[in-house]
């Protein structure tokens, strides 16, 4: 019997290999993200002074839309060739499947963020690199929340007839606190504020992550059992 982390890693590894061999999801999502940046750019005057205030909002709207596209793909490939049955037949804890899928989604969203953030910097003329260490923490907390909640909800949505539309309907209302916190903290950091000034929001993000990773972890077996 392998230990728990080897099991989790085995599932992540399988998903990463199958994605990296085709690159079909990741490449289209990065193009989508850049398109959102470009389209938002048309909604205001070039060089407007208020751009610094709305840029964090644009950034997160783009990433949340991109995440939903990625999250929709979490269980779809498993379902297509009935791979989910194989996964269910393995003698492992169902929570391990959740953890693996969630961590896989975190890695996936981070790749999208890593590749599109430099483009955002160029298009919106905001130098984010001096703030990168601080931003990294905020991004990690926010993306963990999106992946934690999104993985569980995509397991629900994949069984519905309208799965692509169902996921955002389920996910967006629940994600309101996370969106607010992510936009507020990103904006404050870009204005050069310190962590102590945004500690309330950071605590809220952490609490959100803990609750919405623990509860789906405990209830995940009910979502994928036949």
């Amino acid at each position: 019997m392998k230990n728990y982390f080897e099991i989790v890693w085995a599932i992540i590894n399988k998903d990463l290999i199958s994605e990296l061999r085709t690159k079909e999801t990741i490449s289209s999502i990065i193009i989508f993200t850049v398109l959102v940046f470009v389209i938002f750019n048309f909604t205001f005057e070039p060089g407007a002074s208020y751009i610094n205030e709305i840029a964090p909002g644009i950034l997160w709207v783009a990433y949340i839309f991109a995440s939903v596209l990625g999250l929709n793909r979490t269980f779809l490939p498993e379902r297509e060739n009935n791979c989910i049955s194989g996964l269910m037949l393995t003698p492992i804890d169902r929570g391990a499947i959740y953890l693996a899928k969630m961590l896989g989604n975190i890695i996936f969203i981070f790749i999208v963020v890593g590749l599109s953030l430099p483009i955002f910097t160029i298009f919106y003329n905001i130098n984010i690199f001096p703030f990168l260490p601080k931003l990294l923490l905020v991004f990690f907390l926010s993306i963990a929340g999106i992946a934690g909640l999104g993985t569980a909800l995509s397991a629900m949505a994949v069984n519905t007839k309208t799965r692509e539309i169902m996921l955002p309907i389920l996910l967006f209302p629940l994600m309101v606190p996370l969106i607010l916190a992510a936009v507020k903290t990103t904006g404050s950091i870009l204005q050069g504020k310190s962590f102590s000034e945004i500690s309330g929001w950071l605590k809220l993000l952490t609490a959100f992550d803990i609750i919405f990773i623990t509860v789906p972890y405990l209830t995940f077996e009910y979502l994928i059992e036949e």
Binding site: M166, L174, T219
Partner: peptide
């Protein structure tokens, strides 16, 4: 919208738990 009735009931139950826990956080934020 869920194809299988029992799956729908279980999914709704999980969502009912998650949704209720989310309300105080939404309010605070």
């Amino acid at each position: 919208f869920t194809e299988n009735e029992i799956k729908g009931a279980k999914a709704a139950a999980v969502f009912g738990i998650i949704g209720f826990l989310d309300v105080p956080i939404v309010y605070m934020s």
